[in-house]
Computed example of a mutant assay.
Amino acid sequence: MALDTLPTLRWGIVGTGMISSWFVSDLSLERQGKKAEHIIQAIGSSSTEKGRGFVEKHLKGKAPTVYGSYQDLYEDANVDILYIGTPHAFHKQNCLDAIRAGKHVLCEKAFALNSREAQQIFDEAKRQGVFVMEAMWTRFFPLVQQLRRVIHHDKVIGDIDRVFCDFAMPMNIKSLPPSSRLRNAALGAGSLLDIGIYSVTWAILALEAEPGQETPTILGTQRLHDGVDVATSVILSYPDGKQGLATCSTFTKTPSSFCRIEGSQGTVTVDGFAASAPAFFTVHAKDQEPQRYDFERPGKGFYWEADAVALDIAAGRMENELMPWSETLRIMRLMDDIRRQGGAKFPQDDEYC
């Protein structure tokens, strides 16, 4: 595809925290093989001063419009799509406001606090006719796509039996102020929505050849501190006997090999800094030398999901094939179930969870 035929998206950024800084830095990279042009058109922050500081630190040499309120950003006619990088508890309202302003939306994971909120967002997107996707960026890594081909299509380790995945990162939650998004339940705090969603996703991607065609039963347990889950363990069980163990913790750091996939003819291990950012995987097939698959990844890798969004919008689609609305809802329902069993509850759940 020639450069002048690439679709172009003008992005508005909602929120100026760490995840937003990673996103804009990645979209600003010069890279080969890109499938879209991305322009950081505007920044929305809680104050103009904070927004300007974000631009100065992460977007040097660029001059996006800076707004001291999100509503002003929603109303900017020069913005095509909004990337929402605010804490979980704000996602629903941010998405609804953006959608009602006629904007497409890419919203960070976890997409909402519970499946009820997620459904409300998708219902509004359908009414307004705009594109919406959960920003589960890891699903769009070439590594993940190749891994799924290797284990599900090529069946290099035979039939998949079990998967283990862990995402642990020391957060010292007990020492944080009650207002911290990592400790305040009203802000969606807890290990499950923050990092456990990756472990659950890896288990599903490894166990299901076609995600969404079957849904596992869940057995979940959580360790709570002031009502917030600081560690979660989940067993996913399928009718044919396959099982996955997905865990997360705020007390330690997962070793490099964060995922192990076991099959009838061998195993696959996946390595990286964390489950959100895999670097390589290794196939250990029976009676064969281990084969390692490495992948080039400039920056952190947010541009792959952004490219996919641009191609979908250019084609007039409202949702993405790799991360459709149905899959977001399914994962949210699984996490609702995990929290029901484990005891973590958000004030916004009311009687739902």
Rank of each mutant, 00 (worst) to 15 (best):
L6D: 06
T8Y: 00
I13H: 08
G15E: 01
I19K: 04
W22V: 09
V24C: 11
S25E: 12
S28Y: 06
R31D: 02
A36K: 01
S47W: 10
F54V: 07
H58I: 07
K62I: 02
P64Q: 10
Y67P: 03
Y70H: 13
I81L: 11
I84P: 03
Q93P: 07
N94Q: 15
C95N: 12
G102D: 12
K103V: 00
H104F: 08
C107T: 08
C107R: 01
S115K: 13
F122S: 02
K126P: 05
M133G: 12
W137S: 13
F140I: 01
F141I: 05
L143V: 04
R148W: 00
I151E: 00
I157L: 02
D161Y: 07
V163Q: 00
P170T: 04
N172T: 11
I173G: 12
S179W: 05
A185D: 06
A185F: 01
A189G: 12
G190Q: 04
L193C: 14
D194W: 00
I197S: 02
P211N: 13
Q213C: 08
T215C: 11
I218N: 08
L219K: 15
L224H: 03
S233C: 10
I235K: 11
L236K: 01
P239Q: 09
K242T: 07
K242N: 07
A246E: 02
C248N: 04
K253R: 15
F258Y: 06
R260Q: 15
S264T: 14
G266Q: 03
D271S: 14
F273N: 13
S276R: 03
P278M: 04
H284D: 07
A285H: 00
F295C: 01
R297S: 05
D307V: 04
A308P: 01
A314S: 09
A315C: 07
A315S: 11
E321V: 06
L322H: 04
S326T: 12
R333M: 07
R339N: 13
G343V: 08
A344D: 15
